[in-house]
Amino acid sequence: MGRVIGFELNSQDPKKASAFYAKVFGWQVSSQQWDYYPVKTGKGEQLGIDGGIAKGPGDFPHGSRIQIEVDCIDESIRSAKDNGAMVIREKMEFESFYLAYLVDPTGLGFGLVQQK
């Protein structure tokens, strides 16, 4: 629980940002899915933390956030709120996971992910 499993870079031009990171750092960028470009940062035996580049929403148009895997997203949201966090996006359901976005008491954004 609490393992960092990914990152998200938010841009208003995710296609251009994806091309930049691919050229500069050699990241493998996959085809766009819902204004989101999945990214692999490692090669061969040198694994990296994978993530994606997305069209930043109005509440977070630019910037980066880590995604933290939790055992129970509802409990983690409740605990985060009890400790001063603010929920930016309530729990969303995807095919194989749940995702929510929060901001900690200092203003740092992060995502919570629970696998199904």
Rank of each mutant, 00 (worst) to 15 (best):
R3L: 11
I5S: 09
G6M: 12
E8R: 15
E8Q: 15
N10V: 10
S11W: 11
D13A: 15
D13Y: 06
P14K: 09
K16C: 11
K16A: 15
K16S: 14
A19L: 14
F20R: 04
Y21K: 05
Y21S: 03
A22N: 14
A22K: 15
A22Q: 15
K23C: 01
V24W: 10
V24Q: 09
F25S: 10
W27K: 08
W27G: 00
Q28W: 11
Q28Y: 12
Q28M: 13
Q28C: 11
V29S: 04
S30F: 15
Q32A: 07
Q32S: 13
W34M: 14
D35R: 11
Y36F: 14
P38A: 00
T41V: 10
G42W: 13
G42C: 08
K43A: 13
G44N: 13
G44Q: 09
Q46W: 13
Q46E: 13
L47Q: 14
D50V: 06
G51S: 07
G52L: 06
G52D: 09
I53A: 04
A54K: 11
K55W: 09
G56T: 05
G56H: 06
P57C: 01
P57A: 09
G58F: 07
G58H: 06
G58K: 11
F60S: 12
P61Y: 06
G63D: 09
G63I: 13
S64P: 07
S64V: 15
I66V: 14
I66S: 11
I66F: 14
Q67C: 09
I68F: 08
I68E: 03
I68M: 08
I68K: 03
E69V: 04
V70D: 01
D71M: 05
D71S: 11
D71W: 05
C72A: 05
I73V: 04
I73C: 04
S76M: 09
N83E: 08
G84V: 06
G84Y: 02
A85T: 05
M86P: 00
I88Y: 01
E90F: 00
M92N: 05
M92L: 07
E93L: 06
E93P: 00
F97I: 02
Y98K: 06
Y98R: 04
L99T: 00
L99P: 00
L99F: 08
L99R: 01
L99K: 03
Y101L: 01
L102K: 03
P105L: 01
T106A: 06
L108S: 10
G109Q: 09
G109F: 09
G109V: 03
G109W: 05
F110R: 01
F110P: 02
G111L: 10
V113L: 12
Q114E: 14
Q115C: 06
K116E: 12
